[in-house]
Design a protein around this nucleic acid. Structure first.
Lengths: 235, 235, 235, 235
DNA sequence: TATGAATGAGCATTCATTCAT
DNA sequence: GATGAATGAATGCTCATTCAT
């Protein structure tokens, strides 16, 4: 009587849901949220409307899933770098910058969704977006705060410092998203890090920074990014 | 029958158009572009739909007009500061920062429209937005480039420097837009300027910066902001 | 500046709304609520979907309007008969029966909507229907109660008496609705009245009842029925 | 492998079908036909959609089965009373009324389905409903007709008399369905019977009627109601 | 100029039913 | 027999835009 869903079936379901997500991230990134009809996604994904609604509550649910994946991926990455180990704080700043750029570069569609398509979607979602953006700020703020307590930096307003720092990364990404060529976002790591290290009045040597960047890139390449491991990046 | 001179007629037309713009900026800022129906605006403005389409080609035309006003106001302000006079470049950076913050603060609705509602609207508008954003970058880039040529700064990548600089301002404004209290945006001028001056490795004295900020604020308050003069700021 | 909507325009609007109601009552009566798409109504009425939603909030709003017209027409008629004048109570019962049958007969589509299509529509509407049905019962109950107080009738349970009385009318109408021929509903007035007068143990003479029916019919024919006067019955 | 005899298999099928019916009657009664999705029923019943379609042709088939059970239960009951034995016709009227009320009371969900949810479902079903309703009328009409032939009653229009009689019962049930308290429907038997006996101008003594009601109730309690025997009433 | 009634393409979502496993 | 993933037709409703008055 009790029917146990075979593991295999569950796997196929997960795979299909993933396929929809992958397709949707592509379509949303190129056409925008409001310009994308559910029909567009299901046609592109080769499934029926009914199937779509079997896997997602509605259009916004799908979008939210993508948005959440993007933000949690970045947030986890930052958290890991900042919390882990005994590394020197300058190295941490290098690493956190590089690793973020690496992820944004890898998941360009998700980045576009997170940074452009999700903005000003509608009042409800805007609230969610503000909350999640806030989490990034808070993380950096706590980190900078600890640096200040330990006397490493001496900046008049830590909240503004972290906000400014994130702003620099944000805007470099925006510029990259708008470039037509296929540069890697990580190429901007060096000047970006220098800009912020100087801004915080932290000592550093060029060589050391460059070495850190190289190391961080290698590490990043070797990592598994949450559900998006290997070939199945949602792109 | 009262007979109007063409000039009077034209003035009344302009006045009505202005009223629509003022109302629209309020409505768009609070409800968002997609969540705002033309009906919402005309109801709020106390006019008819037909009238609306007499003054504007369509909904997007209205939005573009608002967006253009916002960007040109800021762009003009920056242009003026950077081009004018023999002032010391540190002062110019102070001034350009303060004056931008001042304008954004004064026209909060337009700011919101420009920074949130205009983002990811649709592919067409996104193209326009990228173009206009680019103009800001180019301006700062040229300025920084000239500083580099003159040997005042020595930064590995000027394009990234200007992008980062604009990013810091952008993100501070975003934070301010999301704050519930009614702080003036200009209160963040000092740390913001310090962050960027240090980032560019420019010498400065705290007192001088503070004085510059005060002066710039006074000057800003005395200026006429484009079409938005006096009491009729589009707010 | 202030534009006064011409009376003529308002009249045309009212007329159009009325036309939609008339068409809708026909369509709902023949196809049923759930089987009728908004498209069906607007096609039949020769208008556009947009127009429909200009005049009515939604499909249910339209249906409610029809339902309310039907119930208020009947309720007003009953109220008028029971409250008016010094007539003998037997006459009143004759009159209230005849006049109700007359109206139901005149507005067959509305009757069908009220008695069949509105039943079990959905939980919300069901609540409304129960309330409005209750009003009929209460009216008759009060009337019967007053007759009891004055010693004219002596029945064990007035609430059940009024419920039963209304039930007899209801079921005769249902039978008539299902008949294929085109009998007038009022032909059933005589036996129906006799059934109920006897049930209440009221004395009456056949001739008098017949005369009352004739009079009531004449009066009914001369009356204006709310908004539905003359040729524009919603049929 | 346990080997089942065909009979055991059949019994298990019947049992499952019955469970679905019981659940469905509850769900339809509380949510209404159109507001109930097949999914709602199968979820509540703890089975799969596929199973559902194994036991029933479709949603309407299920509903029809419930409707048919309800009507045939009542019809059989009436038939039995009217046809059986040499009882006095007044007693028969008492009994038929009481027993009907008893059944409606016992199977409240089915009653609700039959009297509310089944009304105005769709043109097809409406046709079926009219047919089955008609059968009740015809039964009573034949009975009244025979009474008239035998000179026991003298009413101008027997068809209307039976229609009216059924209407009184119908409307009392409707009132009871809408009451929030948990009165037994059979409490209304006495006034209802009196109303109709008087309407038909039949002599009766209060005591005799009361006795008949008591007897009929006892008998009803001892009966088996069609397929719904014992503890498994479809409720 | 001003008005607002009229238009209809467009879209998100539901749900009864099927059928491969 | 049982399951539930897959289907897609059907539908209510919105809203930018037009145009006769």
């Amino acid at each position: 009587m009790a029917y146990k869903t075979p593991k295999e079936v569950q796997e196929r379901k997960d795979e299909k849901k993933r396929q929809i997500l992958i397709t949707a991230s592509r379509v949303f990134a190129s056409r925008g949220y409001h310009n994308t009809a559910v029909k567009d996604i299901v046609d592109e994904a080769g499934i029926s409307v009914g199937s779509f609604y079997f896997y997602f509550k509605n259009k916004e649910d799908l979008f939210e899933t993508l948005y959440d994946e993007a933000t949690s991926m970045i947030l986890n990455s930052i958290r890991k770098v900042l919390n882990e180990g005994e590394e020197h704080f300058t190295n941490k700043i290098c690493k956190v910058t590089v690793r973020s750029l690496f992820i944004f570069n890898e998941f360009k569609n998700l980045t576009r969704i997170m940074m452009i398509e999700a903005v000003g979607l509608n009042p409800n979602f805007e609230h969610k977006r503000v909350q999640s953006t806030r989490r990034f700020s808070d993380y950096m703020e706590q980190f900078f705060e600890s640096l200040k307590r330990e006397g490493h930096i001496n900046f008049p307003d830590i909240a503004i410092a972290s906000t400014a720092y994130i702003g620099t990364i944000y805007n470099v990404i925006m510029r990259w998203l708008q470039e037509s060529n296929e540069n890697s976002l990580t190429e901007y790591a060096y000047p970006l890090i220098v800009y912020n290290l100087q801004a915080l009045n932290l000592d550093f040597s060029e060589d050391e920074v460059r070495k850190n960047i190289r190391d961080a890139l290698v590490q990043s390449g070797e990592m598994k990014w949450g559900v998006h491991n290997g070939a199945e990046k949602v792109e």
